[in-house]
């Protein structure tokens, strides 16, 4: 469950005023907003990484796929994933499905943008949580990999709350998601 009441956030040039949201059921929720309207700022506030006014209540743990990959260069792809102590079975599963196992021993500086994104996705999805915040999960992925990720997000949405930040209106249909709008 997520409950946000009268949220006010001011972070750098972004201001979110009087934002309200109630999510009670598991499922997928796509967050849409014009560029610079504060989608990432909202996720940061929900994760309590930045200061805010108002009320944010979340039942359970959060896993957050940041807009940037935030991989540690001195660890291999596998070590980056295992560092966060994920559900190991899930981590192995996602690594196989997303093809991360093919470059698991390589370090981030040896990987392409898409590979890094897939690695960050495995890390976020395999982390034991109740709410998943995914900031642009398809960024840098080719259509084939994006479809694989969508399929797994749909599965995850059956048991958890998944909030996806995306620019593509089609994702709403592809993910069978509900819309959250931030003006």
């Amino acid at each position: 469950m997520i409950s946000i009441k009268n949220l006010r956030v001011k972070f750098k040039d972004t201001v979110i005023e009087n934002f309200n949201l109630e999510i009670e059921k598991n499922g997928i929720y796509c967050l849409f907003a014009p560029s610079g309207a504060g989608k990432t700022t909202l996720l940061n506030a929900v994760s309590k990484l930045i200061k805010f006014e108002g009320e944010i209540k979340i039942d359970g743990e959060i896993s957050y796929l940041f807009q940037e990959d935030r991989l540690l260069n001195w660890f291999s792809a596998r070590e980056n994933i295992m560092l966060v102590e994920p559900d190991e079975e899930k981590a192995e599963y996602y690594m196989t499905v997303f093809g991360v196992d093919e470059f698991a021993d390589k370090k981030p500086q040896e990987l392409s943008g898409g590979m890094k994104r897939r690695c960050a996705l495995v890390r976020a999805l395999a982390f034991k949580a109740d709410v998943y915040l995914l900031d642009e999960p398809f960024r840098g992925l080719d259509e084939q990999n994006a479809d694989l990720v969508r399929k797994e997000i749909i599965e995850l949405g059956k048991e958890k709350i998944v909030i996806v930040v995306t620019h593509d209106e089609l994702d709403l249909e592809k993910l069978n998601a509900q819309r959250i709008t931030l003006n």
């Binding site: 940061n44 994760s47 990484l49 959060i62 896993s63 957050y64 940041f66 940037e68 935030r70 540690l72 660890f75 560092l83 966060v84 102590e85 890390r123 982390f127």
Partner: peptide
Amino acid sequence: EYKDFAKMYKITGMKKIKY
């Protein structure tokens, strides 16, 4: 951004220093 990452994924204390 990396401190935030550590906070989100519960990487704290000695683990944070070491890794």
